[in-house]
């Protein structure tokens, strides 16, 4: 190999690296109004479109990051990892789907649980990762939720859940269904003890999660425009052979029909929940 050959690959490598540094990916489009948005700016607005106020989806970690105080955080139930009990296989093996989702999101499964503080108030919070298998609930989501809630129960500190999910995870079949019963049971213990549980539904919340932990909050809350329901719109349309009314299953629809207590804008989420929880725990105003 000549000295030139030795140099050329390194040159080309450098060039590739350089091209990655080009500020591509600094811009994104609002999925609703198509406005071109500058990403660093979006961090300040908490991923809410400054043009049309559309609340973009945020990942579980980003969600907890924007919600909890920066100090005294501790992630919970990380030891709970997915198991493919049914050896489920369709066109792909469930095991391989899990590995792919883990690689893509950097998460072990679709729920992140943390103990932390909200304006100094000790609290346990969990958030769904929609990018992991559509935020679907199988064993890990149910178990992590339950372990986190149990800590809130034992320490009698408020519990908050941010959900974003398509529902129960098919690939874990009835084990997924039973997570509905499991999570509902622990929530009922919180309720009997008088430990506040706030369920915040972010777009979207459907199926088995909606029919269990998401609608059992002392307070049920939605972000503006988020959709939540039991059956997805296409299933309902197929069943009744009718077009659905405009705004069906949106936060505003849910408020009107009495399913939720209020709609809270993302930028107000911390302040509002802190103020609500202070009242429920009979603490001084924050």
């Amino acid at each position: 190999m000549s000295w030139l050959d030795k140099i050329i690959p390194s040159i080309s490598r450098t060039e590739t690296k350089r091209s990655n540094k080009v500020p591509e990916g600094l811009w994104e489009k609002c999925v609703k109004c198509d406005a071109v948005l500058y990403k660093p700016e979006m961090e300040k607005t908490l991923d809410v479109c400054p043009k049309c106020d559309h609340h973009m989806r945020v990942g579980a970690r980003a969600r907890l990051n924007m919600f909890l105080d920066p100090q005294n955080r501790q992630e919970l139930a990380t030891e709970v990892e997915p198991i493919d009990r049914l050896k489920f296989k369709d066109v792909k093996k469930y095991k391989d789907r899990l590995t792919a989702a883990q690689k893509e999101t950097g998460e072990k499964d679709a729920l992140v649980a943390m103990r932390g503080e909200l304006k100094g108030m000790p609290i346990v919070a969990v958030a769904f990762e929609f990018a992991f298998h559509g935020g679907s609930m199988g064993y890990v989501v149910g178990e992590r939720f339950t372990r986190a809630a149990t800590i809130a129960l034992k320490e009698n500190i408020p519990f908050v859940c941010f959900s974003a999910t398509g529902g129960a995870r098919m690939q874990e079949a009835l084990i997924s269904l039973m997570q509905m019963a499991k999570t509902s049971a622990v929530i009922e213990r919180l309720k009997m003890q008088g430990t506040p549980y706030i369920s915040v539904m972010t777009d979207p919340v459907y199926g088995g999660v909606s029919a269990s932990l998401a609608l059992l909050g002392d307070l049920n809350i939605c972000e503006p425009g988020s959709r939540a329901g039991f059956a997805g719109p296409s299933i309902i349309e197929q069943t009744i052979r009718q077009k659905l009314p405009k705004g069906f299953q949106r936060a505003e629809f849910l408020l009107e029909h009495g399913a939720i207590d209020m709609i809270i804008h993302r930028r107000d989420m911390r302040d509002k929940l802190a103020s609500l929880l202070a009242k429920f725990t009979r603490k001084a105003a924050v």
Binding site: F230, H257, G258
Partner: peptide, 22 residues
């Protein structure tokens, strides 16, 4: 899975049963 079902809170009605039966 119908409009009326959703309007009257089918999810909540199921969830409530799970909680109370426990």
């Amino acid at each position: 899975p119908g409009i009326d079902s959703e309007e009257r809170g089918i999810s909540e009605s199921i969830a409530q049963n799970l909680a109370v039966m426990s």
